Simulated assay, not measured.
Amino acid sequence: MSTAITAAVARAKGEPFTIQKARLRGPQDDEVLVRVVATGLCHTDLIVRDQFYPVPLPAVLGHEGAGVVEEVGPNVKNLKPGDHVVLTYGACGYCQPCVGGHGAYCSHFFGLNFGGGDLEGRTAIEDEEGRPLHDHFFAQSSFASHALARENNAIKVPQDAPLELLGPLGCGIQTGAGAVINSLKVTPGSRFASFGAGAVGLSAVMAARVAGASTIIAVDIVPSRLELAKELGATHTVNSREVDMVEAIRDITGGGVDFALESTGHPQVLAGAIEALGTLGAIGVVGAPPLGTKGEFDINGLLLNGRTIRGIVEGDSVPQRFIPQLVELYQQGRFPFDKLVKFYPVEQINEAAEDSTRGVTLKPILRFTHA
């Protein structure tokens, strides 16, 4: 049986999303059908719409969904209709990185998340004329009133948590917070800098505060973002449009930071961020520029100072464990990521995208209305 859905479709490179009716097939194997309550709009959705990554179009994007399970496939073991879930990235669950607890580096990651269908190239959504729409985006395609996910990327969350708020925990918020806690392992009393104060960078700021860093520096060019960073735990802010950010960070820290995160995707920012590291400092890179973008750094500065540079996908998190932990931290008032979001009806997706691109809104969340 198929389900009639409403979806926001990216039809061609750089064009606005269009809202249209479609049909979604029922769940098979270990899949779950989720009625989407709300879904975050992420930078990755926009760079795919604009074809920085070669996902085939037309497609139903969306990868920060949250909703209610309506139906489960025959091989689903631990989810049932009525469960509240956050949808996260897809991973096969059986390759070497997956069995080692590093599903974000799944051997099939690109195919499962950016392939435009399942690993065999099959799609689950058809438009009103019966033509296939590319889907399975991040194993969910949640820019739709209903989405199919697999049991391993539909994360059960408490019924008393605000479901419409939780979708961004599946990607953007998880990425920033996980980079700090899981990947860099920021330590109590350490010095940390976030290069970029968007949703990912500010999630890192909040996580650094949870981790006990004593100096937390937010770097950006937008004054309002820097003010919000102070609310969320930054002890210092640096406007890199007004001052030399490397010199400013060295002055604040007396030599450089122990840990840093680069979330802007700009190579020149990454180069400066590496220079702002202290001895034995480590930087995580999560900003996603167009494929093929190159960066530069001083090799001797890296070598003689014992610095570390590492790429990070999805905060290197095990979502089944990490997303419920973030929900609990939010409910305790220790991770107030609600201060990053603004809600839009899904019909205003293009306004939300424009606001995100202009920096007016840090984390748009699209709401779906169900009869």
Rank of each mutant, 00 (worst) to 15 (best):
A8F: 07
A10T: 08
A12F: 06
F17V: 03
A22W: 00
V36I: 14
C42Y: 10
D45G: 05
L46Q: 11
I47V: 15
P54G: 08
P54I: 09
L57D: 07
L57A: 09
A66M: 07
K77E: 13
K77M: 12
L79D: 02
L79W: 10
V85K: 03
Q96P: 00
C106N: 11
S107K: 14
G111R: 13
A124S: 06
H134D: 02
Q140F: 01
P158N: 11
L166P: 01
A179G: 15
V180A: 04
T187K: 15
L202D: 11
M206T: 13
R209I: 09
S214I: 01
I217A: 10
I221H: 14
P223E: 07
S224A: 14
A234C: 13
S240A: 12
G254S: 10
G256I: 06
D258I: 03
P267H: 04
P267N: 03
V269K: 14
V269G: 13
V285S: 03
T293I: 06
L303R: 11
D316N: 13
R321I: 09
Y330W: 09
R334E: 09
P336T: 05
E354D: 12
R358A: 14
R358W: 01
K363N: 04
T369Q: 10
T369S: 15
H370A: 14
